[in-house]
Structure formats: structure tokens, C-alpha cells
Design a protein around this nucleic acid. Structure first.
Lengths: 254, 254
DNA sequence: AAGATTTTTGACCAGTTGGAAAAATGTTAG
DNA sequence: CTAACATTTTTCCAACTGGTCAAAAATCTT
């Protein structure tokens, strides 16, 4: 069964392009931990060391393991021990790289947000409305297929009221959506798109696509063996395309 | 500001019609706990006591409190102490009614499933396709508005892979969806409905409606003060109706 | 190769949490 | 009213968890 293409099948691993600093802008006192009690050279701002090879490698391993564990059990449901085990190291060792459990989570979340905003950003105002919307849906669906763990991590955060990213949601995400809503509105004015609420339109794309990652068990269980296999994403793509473009009103008999 | 109606505004409390036994069919050794070591009257199946008034009341109070806490923090993120506090009793006292934390959760989940299946069950094969689908969407949206905690509890369970209700999903839910998919298919055959995948159609209704409960923070943040108020559900209803009935293809100029 | 630095480990600890036991207090049927 | 049963409170505990710390091992620098 050759994987009927939905589109490119991205590597299910990397969430961001290698050095995903994003917010690691913090002087990252990573393995530097708290400096010794009596600071030798007085008030020197603790020269931010450049991060060794091992540090970079191990941090990536830990973040990957944490994504695995957090996305499956939630923050409070996950233990450092679990993450350490998946990462193949001891708990104190892991704590050496991320002194706090929360710190791991924070890093994951900030990387996540960027990845999450990207697809919408790609929607071009100067493109064809249907092509743009269609591509956006595809991209989101591919993300649900290829990065289900990120999707679940995000969903989990939302369910909890987005405590860690609420401000980014209110500022960055809102700004982006406002901008794209404007684009949609323009298309509608030009008669290229049916006139509806652009915000809810975007919500419905989010909802329908993420559903295939977040509610995957349900989807597979309901579809059953026959249709719940690999092909379900293409079926979904086809269906969603139809829904958004034509709705459920039947074509007048030819 | 009078609540622009979406429909009836049900009482946000009760999740199931009073005596929601559902699965409480178990001889419920509730406060009877495990019987004493040396059972007096030998192998008598421990006469299932009829449940006192206090027992019924307290159990309801506990379940309500547990719903509040579990839906907000997840199973592992919630402590018995928290639930006990919300329920206004001491931890050991709560444990007297539900000897295990898991037991509370189990009860909540089985009640939940029934509530969750109900709206779809109401979709009548002998009704008008559009009326039926439209009503179904409204009902689901009302549930998202009036019972967001149940929705989040459900979403949480799904995210975790539905460990507690997977079999009900695979059997009962699947059977129900199979049945309704058949109904949809018939409508399509009769040309009353555009021909698409009935399963994914149902998924998309679930996804779009639940989104307003599960991702409520995001929805409100993105809509902003101006449009994120009470009216958002009616806007959503209007939009979804349009989406499902007409899609995004603009009407040919009149 | 020695010294400096970074990484890893094992032992340990304090706070939290689910839950047990038993004593104390309430409720109610006869 | 009172015995039998239901409910509640107090006390306690063992497992788990996030995190610490000093010393050992590995790695890097010169």
C-alpha cells in the first residue's frame, strides 16, 4: 500500500529548524546553574558560556523525550523520571541540563507556538482565495498527521486555559489572525469568496484539521479497520476540501 | 444585554437526568467498602443496600466537584484534596463515598459518554436532511456553550488515548456513527445532500462545535473584547450553518 | 600528560498525595 | 428511647516526586 500522497511527508521528528532558539534568548544559565555561593570575581554578569556540543545534543534529546512524554500525559501527569528514561539518562543528569521541570515545558511551548503560527502566515493576500485556503487546510492537515504530539501538547495547553502562552495568544496570534481575517474580508468584498465571518472561518479550519491529531483514537475507532488506516488523512483532505468549497448543498442535477 | 438566543439555555449543572445510573449497575459497594474479614453469614453476596439519602446527595456533590476539578486539571493534575475542598468535605470523608480516586473518574466518564451520544441519536432518518443536520450542529454548539467542563473532560480523555472509554468508543459510539452514516448516505443517494464522506462529515461537526468549548481561551483571545463576548456562540452558529450548507463558494451574482 | 572543566552518578531529602485505621459522632428504624 | 448502622473526624503512613549535593568519571585544553 503505497502511501497515497496528501503532500510531502515531512520528517516526523524535528519540530523547528535545528537551532530553534526562539526564546532561548535568555542568557540560559543552563548547566551553569546557580554560581557558587561566594562569587569570586564579584558582580561580573556570569559570562554566558557558548554551549558545548554535548549541551546542545543533550538538550535536544531531552526536549524530544519531553515532547513525547508531555504530549501523552500532560505536564502534571509526566514525571522527570519518565522523561529521563525516554531520553536515556538519569534524573539528576537531566536536571543538570534543565534545572526545573517547568523549564523544559517552557522551551517546548515557545518552540511550539512558532511552528503553529507558520502555516497561517503563509497565506498570501495576492494569491487565489481558493488555492490559498485549500493549501492552508492541507498544510494544517499535514501537521496533524506528521506532528501529532505537538498538536496534542498544544491542545493540552488550551484545555488548561493556556496558562503559559496566553499572552502570546493574545498578542502575536491575535495580530496574525486579525491580519489574515482582513485578507479574507477583502476577498469577500471582491466577490471571490462567500461572505461569512472570517474569524470563525479560521477557527473551523483549525478545529477540523487538529481534530485528526487530537482525537485520533476516536477517529480510528469509528472508522474501523477498513477505513481507519493510513488513508484516513487523504479522505479527510478530500472531504474538507469539499466541505469548505461546496458545503453540503447538492449540485443541481446536470 | 438580553442573551441573544441560540436556543434554550439549559441549566449548566446537571449532566444527566437525575438518576444517571448508566454503569452504576455495579452492586456499588460504595460506603459498604470491603466487608469484614471473616464474613459472618458465609457466602451471601453482601446484600446491596439501597443507598441512603445522604449517600445520594453527597455522591452528587462529589461528582460535581470532581467534574470541576478534573476538567480543569486533568486526572493526574487533580488531587483528592482539591476535589474534597470544592465539595466542601474532608478528604477521608470523600474517600468514604468513593474509595478510589479512579472510581470518581470512572463514574464521570460513563455518565459523560451517554450525554455525549445523545445529540447524534436524535438525528432522525425521516426528517429533512438540512433541518436535521442544522439541529444537530445547534445542539452540539449548545452543549459546548452550556457544558464546557464535560467537553473538556472528554477532550482530555481523548488526548490521552481514551484509556477508560476506548471500548465504549469502539462499540457503542462506532455503532451509532455507522448507523447515522448510513442515514446520511441514503440522503445523498436521494440527491438531498451533496455526496461526501459521511464519517468525516460527522467528525467535522464534532470538531467545529467542540472547538468552542475546548479552545475557548483561544477563541476569546483572538476575537478580542469586541466580539469575544457572549455573542460568540451565535456568531459561530451562524457561520457554521453557512459553512455546512453553502461552503465558501460565492453565490453567482444575482 | 596534567590540570581544568564539564558531565554523570548515587545517595539523600522534604513535600505531596492517595489511602488506611480507628475512634467519635449522627441518624433512624423499631 | 436505643441499638444498629451510617457518617465524619483525627491521626498516621508509605509511595512518589521534584530537586539537592558531593564525589566520581569523562572530556577538553594547553
Amino acid at each position: 500500500m503505497a502511501p497515497r500522497k496528501l503532500n510531502s511527508r515531512a520528517s516526523p521528528k524535528a519540530i523547528a529548524p535545528a537551532s530553534s532558539k526562539v526564546i532561548a534568548a535568555e542568557p540560559s544559565p543552563s548547566p551553569a546553574k546557580r554560581q557558587h555561593k561566594a562569587d569570586a570575581k564579584a558582580a561580573v554578569p556570569a559570562k554566558a558560556r557558548p554551549l558545548t556540543r554535548i549541551q546542545r545534543e543533550k538538550q535536544d534529546i531531552i526536549l524530544e523525550a519531553a515532547l513525547e512524554v508531555f504530549s501523552a500525559h500532560g505536564f502534571r501527569g509526566s514525571t522527570i523520571d519518565q522523561i529521563a528514561e525516554v531520553a536515556g539518562m538519569s534524573k539528576p543528569n537531566l536536571l543538570y541540563y534543565f534545572p526545573k521541570k517547568e523549564e523544559i515545558h517552557r522551551r517546548l511551548m515557545s518552540e511550539l507556538l512558532v511552528t503553529w503560527l507558520a502555516p497561517l502566515q503563509e497565506m498570501r493576500a495576492d494569491g487565489d482565495p481558493f488555492v490559498e485556503i485549500r493549501s492552508y487546510i492541507r498544510r494544517k492537515l499535514e501537521m496533524a498527521r506528521d506532528f501529532p504530539r505537538q498538536s496534542r501538547l498544544f491542545a493540552n495547553e488550551m484545555l488548561r486555559g493556556a496558562p503559559h502562552i496566553i499572552d502570546m495568544i493574545e498578542v502575536d496570534l491575535k495580530a496574525l489572525v486579525d491580519e489574515k481575517a482582513q485578507v479574507l474580508l477583502t476577498w469577500m468584498d471582491e466577490g471571490k469568496l462567500a461572505r461569512t465571518d472570517p474569524y470563525h472561518l479560521i477557527f473551523s479550519i483549525w478545529a477540523t484539521t487538529q481534530h485528526y491529531a487530537d482525537f485520533d483514537v476516536q477517529v480510528r475507532a469509528v472508522l474501523g479497520k477498513a477505513r481507519g488506516g493510513e488513508g484516513r488523512f487523504e479522505d479527510a483532505a478530500r472531504y474538507l476540501e469539499h466541505l469548505f468549497l461546496h458545503g453540503l448543498t447538492p449540485k443541481p442535477r446536470a
